[in-house]
Amino acid sequence: MKSFTFAAGLCLTASFAIAETPVLTVYAPDYFGSEWGPGPAIEQAFEATCECDLQFVTGDVLPRLLLEGERTRADAVIGLNTDVTARARATGLFAPHGQDTSDLTMPIDWTDDVFLPFNWGHTAFIYNNTKIENPPTSFDELLNAPDDLKIVIQDPRSSISGLALILWVKAVYGDDAEAAWAKLQPKILTVTKGWSESYGMFTDGEADMVLSYTTSPAYHIIAENDQTKQAAIFEEGHYFMVELAAQIAGTDQPELAQAFMDFILTEPFQSIIPEGNWSFPANLSSDKLPTGFDQLKLPEKVLFYTEDEAAALRDEALDEWLRALR
């Protein structure tokens, strides 16, 4: 009986201990929160400072948030990008991040006071330099390449990188975007639902080039010591993709959510990004990047649509894409 009372007491203390630790719930994409993404390391680093329990809830962040609306359990979200933030902002669920973004390590200026960037990259076509000696050096060259140069891309309706691609083409070709797609069409081996299928087809040698990011070769260089995967740099410029975080205005943990916002641009968080999310950190000087990142080929010119421009153009860009490829 004595031991039972003791055990019961132990259970009680244990549950009190759990109850006393405040929980910060952050919605994140599946790749972000998984063991192979940056989530676990960020969780550890943040919990060391906050005396709280940071929990990533993974899944489709924006659709989930839109479904939940005001009743959301999220205190903060991470992993949105500018091509969808107009829709997210319209919900009115978010509160300002309160960070100084005047001196970030990004190629564009950032003035948004709600969505806070934490990493970035550009869309790019990746090729294997043992198979292609002279990759296209411009979008025009890609369009005019022989039709047996095969690329795989992702569907803008189901993939965020696919959406970035149609905006990239729109940014380069403007009103001639549909004609550009028509020219590219014979070179498009196929279109996949997500990035993984495309990338798998590329690494299997089925396609010559794949739509991915300028930072993709970093994984092969650092983790596999493989120098053969390279981004083809186009002189018209590359579409800038930035990933964002924001806090929820109606959170029941306002201090913790704010603490998390304050944490994002600090070095402990930022230094996890390069090899955790294979992207450029938004606030980390280049000398602190891991070796390997210095070998990445990067565009001189960056193309970028603000969220309002992206929101205004995406339906038109999708229609042009569909008409040209059908």
Binding site: D30, Y31, S34, W36, G37, Y199, G200, W278
Partner: peptide
Amino acid sequence: YRLMASYRL
């Protein structure tokens, strides 16, 4: 899928 999404093909 997670392994794939993080390049670990």
